[in-house]
Design a protein around this nucleic acid. Structure first.
Lengths: 117, 117
DNA sequence: GTATTGTGCTAGTGCAAATAGAACAATAGA
DNA sequence: TCTATTGTTCTATTTGCACTAGCACAATAC
C-alpha cells in the first residue's frame, strides 16, 4: 500500500490521495478487509496535513470503498470488487480520447455532462 | 444552440458552459461552421458575467473546438466531428459506472488517474 | 490501562472563481 | 467609409475552497 501525490499538480491533494487508493483498487492491488495506512503516518511521510489525508479517507468512505472507524482505521469494503470491473473500460476510453487529441479536463467535463442527463 | 448551467453545482460556471457546448458537439447538434451565441447575450440571459462566458469560450478555443475572433464570434471548427465519435463510448462507460454505484467525482477521478499514467 | 486512530472544532493563509467596469481592436454589414 | 457588433485586455474586489495548524475528544485494539 503506497500512496502517491504530486504537489505540483492542480488537482487537490485529498483527491490525489483518494485517486491513488482507487487506482490500487481497480488494479486488484487491494482486497476487501485490507487496511489503509494510518492517516497520521501518511501525513508525516508525504509531508501533508493529517486533515488532508483524512479528508481523502472520508471521501472514500462516502463512496463506500472503505469503512472508517476510530481506533481501527480505514478498512477496504466489498465494493472493491466492483472497481476492478472498470479496470478495462476506463483505459479503453482514455486511449480513444487521447487519439482524438482530447485533454483530461475535456473528457471529464463530457462525462460529468453525461452523468447529469 | 442553448447553453445551460446549474448555479448550485460545485462545478465552476465557465466549465459548465464549456461542457454544455461539448455535449451538443458530441450529440451532433453542432456542425463545423456553426456559430455560438455572442458572449454578451449569453451572459445577460443566464445572468452571469461576460468574462465567465468568454472564459468558457477560450477554454473551447484552447482545445480547438471553436475558432474565436473579435467581431465574428465563436465558430465551430472541424474538430467537432471527433467529438461525436465519443458520443457512443462515453454513455456506455457512464452507465456501467452508474450500475456499480460509482459517483461522478469517483469516475472522473479514476479517469484523471488513468490519463496521467 | 494505555497507545492508537479517527472525529470535531476553531482559526488562519493562499489561490482560483466570479463579478464589475472600462478602454481597446478586429470584423461584419449597411 | 461609417457604425454596430464582438472578442481582447486590464485592473480591482468579493467569495469560497483547499490546505495548514493545533487542540481536545471518543472509540477501538492489544
Amino acid at each position: 500500500m503506497l500512496l502517491r501525490i504530486d504537489p505540483a499538480s492542480a488537482v487537490p491533494l485529498f483527491e490525489q490521495l483518494a485517486a491513488s487508493v482507487r487506482s490500487d483498487a481497480s488494479r486488484g492491488a487491494l482486497r476487501a478487509g485490507d487496511r489503509l495506512p494510518a492517516a497520521r503516518g501518511v501525513a508525516e511521510s508525504l509531508d501533508v496535513n493529517v486533515h488532508t489525508v483524512l479528508r481523502a479517507y472520508q471521501a472514500l468512505r462516502d463512496e463506500g470503498l472503505v469503512d472508517l472507524r476510530r481506533g481501527r482505521g480505514a478498512v477496504v469494503t466489498d465494493l472493491v470488487t466492483h472497481y476492478s470491473e472498470l479496470g478495462e473500460a476506463i483505459p479503453r476510453l482514455v486511449s480513444t480520447a487521447k487519439e482524438l487529441g482530447l485533454g483530461v479536463s475535456t473528457l471529464t467535463a463530457m462525462i460529468r455532462q453525461e452523468y447529469g442527463s
